[in-house]
Design a protein around this nucleic acid. Structure first.
Length: 372
DNA sequence: AAAACGTGGTT
DNA sequence: TAACCAAGTTT
């Protein structure tokens, strides 16, 4: 087997130093230890049952910045509803989005559908098996292309995700930031050419089950003998904390106005940082602003009439760096004269339909908020 | 290149 | 509870 372990001469220039004690000839040993461990400890995940390119692709997109546990039920539903490329290519965007609601990063769902259509048309439904073609599809970047090529096609293509970065950092005993290329070089070098699928999965599996971000289980690690950080007992301090954008507090008032089994929704997202085409009537308020008058003004603007609201509760939700605290106001209108005609940009929608249309978890939480 | 994108589980 | 984080991609 070819390939190189951490710290070999492959590591160029100023990035060579750390972890330089590991020798090139240990690579085969490392690969074997990892593959053996994987064969025994791999989780039984649904996308591993029949790893067709389509299924691997769907799973990889679902798993972007998303835990396995979270993605699991979405995967099952998605595959049931869209069992193959053609069924997905034929779907409408709202249909796909509906299955994605609550998962986040909704561009993933839109891109999935677009890419499916592109594959059906450009490649006649045959899943592309080259990096160039995969990268040209929306939503597929370097990682996902590598994952599809290696896992589904068993091509010796590298992958670098959070697990791989952490694993390499510890194996090399790296305590400072490294370029992305540094990780890609190692991930390329250590692939056993004929077992890329199992090996790449094994690397990520090890990161997910043993080489944990905090509290790594070094005692159970099949490659601890190769690990500089493990040997030096500093695995806990790797990788170093990364700087993050300061979070920002946002106060919102939301209204859930119902009438005759319908809910008043916005047809255009009132808050641009909340995802989805449909939303609840919402308004941002200042730190010291009274919520009730703001909510009342909001409802009046939407229905052009005064509505008696009662505060139903508070919903907390975070969207990227924004920490949202939303006060939810309820009202149920009497239906003597039919539904009041809403102002432009608002619409009455059946309760069940509303659940389907509203993408964001913020609004979904608010929709479930009762009394208080 | 840095920032934006979403969310729920963990710590 | 606030912060951190996860099988990244796009601009």
């Amino acid at each position: 087997m070819r390939g190189t372990l951490p710290g070999s001469s492959l590591m160029a220039g100023k990035e060579r130093r750390a972890g330089g004690y590991l020798l090139r000839e240990k690579t085969t040993e490392f690969q074997k230890a990892l593959l053996r461990w994987f064969a025994r400890h791999r989780r039984d995940l649904p996308w591993r049952h029949t790893p067709t390119p389509y299924r691997v692709w769907i799973s990889e997109i679902l798993l972007q910045q998303t835990r396995v546990r979270t993605a699991l039920p979405y995967y099952e539903r998605f595959i049931k509803r869209f069992p193959n490329l053609r069924s997905l290519a034929r779907a409408s965007e709202p249909e796909v989005l509906e299955l994605w609601a609550g998962l986040g990063y909704y561009a993933r769902a839109r891109n999935l559908r677009r890419a499916a259509a592109m594959i059906v048309h450009r490649h006649h439904g045959r899943f592309p098996a080259t990096q160039r073609e995969l990268l040209s599809l929306p939503g597929i970047g370097r990682y996902t292309a590598g994952a599809i090529l290696s896992i589904a096609f068993n091509q010796p293509e590298p992958i670098v995700d959070g697990n791989v970065r952490r694993l390499i950092s510890r194996l090399h005993g790296i305590t400072r930031r490294r370029s992305e290329e540094y990780f890609w070089r190692q991930a390329t070098a250590w692939i056993p050419p004929d077992r890329a699928s199992q090996f790449n999965q094994a690397v990520m599996e090890l990161g997910a089950l043993v080489c944990l971000p905090s509290g790594p289980l070094c005692a159970q690690c099949p490659v601890s003998g190769f690990c500089e950080a493990g040997i030096r007992g500093i695995a806990d301090r790797i990788p170093p904390p990364r700087s993050k954008r300061a979070s920002q507090e946002v106060r919102l008032v939301l209204t859930v106005v119902e009438c005759d089994g319908r809910v008043l929704l916005c047809t255009k997202q009132p808050m641009d940082f909340v995802p989805g085409d449909w939303g609840l009537p919402a308004a941002a308020i200042g730190p010291a602003e009274m919520a009730h008058p703001a909510a009342h003004a909001l409802a009046r603007g939407a229905l052009r009439m005064s509505v008696r609201l009662r505060e139903a509760g508070t919903v907390s939700h975070a969207i990227t760096y924004r920490r949202i605290r939303a006060q939810v106001f309820n009202a149920t209108l009497k239906v003597k004269t039919g539904l009041p005609r809403p102002a432009a940009g608002y619409d009455w929608v059946g309760r069940a339909e509303a659940e389907r249309l509203v993408t964001s978890s913020l609004y979904r939480k608010a929709l479930r908020t009762r009394s208080g």
